[in-house]
C-alpha cells in the first residue's frame, strides 16, 4: 500500500486537484449554467496566492483565503451578465473570460511575470492537505444534494421557468451556483500553485479548460461520484497508454467519443443511477406496492 503510494504520489496529488476543479466545473453545469470558466478561476486563485506568498511574504493560509475571496468576487461580478445569456452563449462568454484572464496575466508582466510566470513558490501542499480540501468540497456538495439548494439547482437545470413559478429567485440561485464554482476553482488553483513550484499562464489556458470539462463529461454532471470517476479515468489513462504516449490526444478523444455515445450521463452518474434503480426495485417498493394496492382496491 505504502509503496504504491510512493510510486504514484504525484499522480494521486494531481488526481485530487483535478477532482476539485471537476467539482467547480460540475457545480455550474449541474445548476444549468453552461460555464467553462473554471480554468479562469483557478488561474486567479493560483496567481493571487503565488504573488502574495512570494512577493509579500503573506502566510499561506491567509493567501489561500484571499484567493477564495477573489474567486467569489470575480464570479459574482461575472454572474450578472451571464444571467442574461443561455446555453452556448454562456459557454462563449465564459470562454472569453478565461482568455481575458490569460491576456491580463501576460500583459501585466511586472506583476505577474508575463509568459514566464511566477517561480519559487514554496511547495507546502501534500497529499494530506489536498485530500482534506477534496473532502471538504465533497461534504459541501453532499450537503447541497440533500437540502433545498440542491433541489433548486436541479430545478434550474431542468426548467428554470418552473422554478420561478414556484417562487425561486432564479437569478440569485444562478449567481450562487456560479459563485460556489468560482470559490472552489480559485481555491484549488491556489492549492495547485503551492504544489508545482512555478506557474505560468499557459497552465490555465485552453488545455486546462478542456481538462476540467472532460472530467465532468467523462464522469458525470449530477452525482458526487461524477468528478471522481472522471478524474480517475483522466489520471489512469495516460499511465495505461504509456506506449502510445505520442498519440495520447487521439486516445483521449476516442474515449470521450465512446463515453458520450454509450454513457451520455458520464461513467460516474450512470453507475450511481444504475445502483439507485437496483436498490429501489428491491426493498423500498415492496412496502409501497402494498399501499398502492390499497389505492386500487379503494377505487
Amino acid at each position: 500500500m505504502m509503496s504504491f503510494y510512493y510510486s504514484y504520489q504525484p499522480l494521486i496529488d494531481f488526481f485530487l486537484i483535478a477532482v476539485g476543479l471537476g467539482y467547480s466545473q460540475q457545480l455550474a453545469l449541474r445548476a444549468g449554467v453552461f460555464s467553462i470558466a473554471t480554468a479562469g478561476f483557478s488561474a486567479l486563485g493560483a496567481y493571487a496566492t503565488a504573488i502574495l506568498v512570494t512577493r509579500y511574504g503573506v502566510p499561506v493560509p491567509a493567501a489561500i483565503l484571499v484567493s477564495a475571496v477573489v474567486g467569489m468576487a470575480v464570479s459574482y461580478v461575472l454572474s450578472v451578465p451571464l444571467a442574461r445569456l443561455r446555453g452556448a452563449f454562456q459557454a462563449i462568454a465564459t470562454l472569453a473570460f478565461v482568455q481575458v484572464v490569460i491576456a491580463l496575466l501576460l500583459y501585466f508582466e511586472s506583476f505577474t511575470g508575463g509568459a514566464i510566470g511566477i517561480s519559487g513558490i514554496p511547495r507546502v501542499m501534500n497529499t494530506g492537505w489536498l485530500l482534506l480540501a477534496v473532502l471538504v468540497t465533497i461534504y459541501v456538495i453532499w450537503s447541497i444534494n440533500r437540502t433545498s439548494v440542491g433541489r433548486v439547482f436541479n430545478a434550474l437545470r431542468q426548467d428554470d421557468s418552473v422554478a420561478a413559478s414556484l417562487g425561486v429567485p432564479i437569478k440569485s440561485y444562478y449567481a450562487l451556483a456560479f459563485v460556489l464554482s468560482g470559490l472552489i476553482g480559485a481555491v484549488f488553483g491556489a492549492l495547485r500553485s503551492l504544489y508545482v513550484f512555478n506557474i505560468e499562464p499557459v497552465d490555465f489556458g485552453f488545455h486546462a479548460m478542456v481538462a476540467s470539462l472532460t472530467v465532468v463529461v467523462l464522469g458525470g454532471r449530477n452525482t458526487l461520484l461524477g468528478p471522481i470517476a472522471g478524474a480517475l479515468i483522466m489520471a489512469i489513462l495516460p499511465e495505461l497508454a504509456r506506449p502510445l504516449a505520442e498519440n495520447r490526444g487521439i486516445l483521449n478523444g476516442v474515449i470521450l467519443i465512446l463515453v458520450i455515445t454509450f454513457l451520455p450521463n458520464g461513467v460516474g452518474d450512470e453507475l450511481v443511477y444504475w445502483l439507485r434503480r437496483r436498490l429501489r426495485r428491491a426493498p423500498k417498493t415492496m412496502s409501497k406496492r402494498k399501499e398502492g394496492a390499497d389505492v386500487v382496491a379503494a377505487d
Binding site: 461534504y139 459541501v140 453532499w142 450537503s143 447541497i144 440533500r146 437540502t147 433545498s148 439548494v149 440542491g150 433541489r151 433548486v152 436541479n154 430545478a155 422554478a163 414556484l166 417562487g167 425561486v168 450562487l176 460556489l180
Partner: peptide, 19 residues
C-alpha cells in the same frame, strides 16, 4: 412535489451548504 414547498422553507442557504 418537494420542490413545490420552496416558498415555505425556513432553513437558509448557509445551513443548506453546511448540511
Amino acid at each position: 412535489v418537494v420542490i413545490g414547498y420552496f416558498r415555505k422553507q425556513r432553513s437558509g442557504v448557509m445551513s443548506s451548504l453546511m448540511g
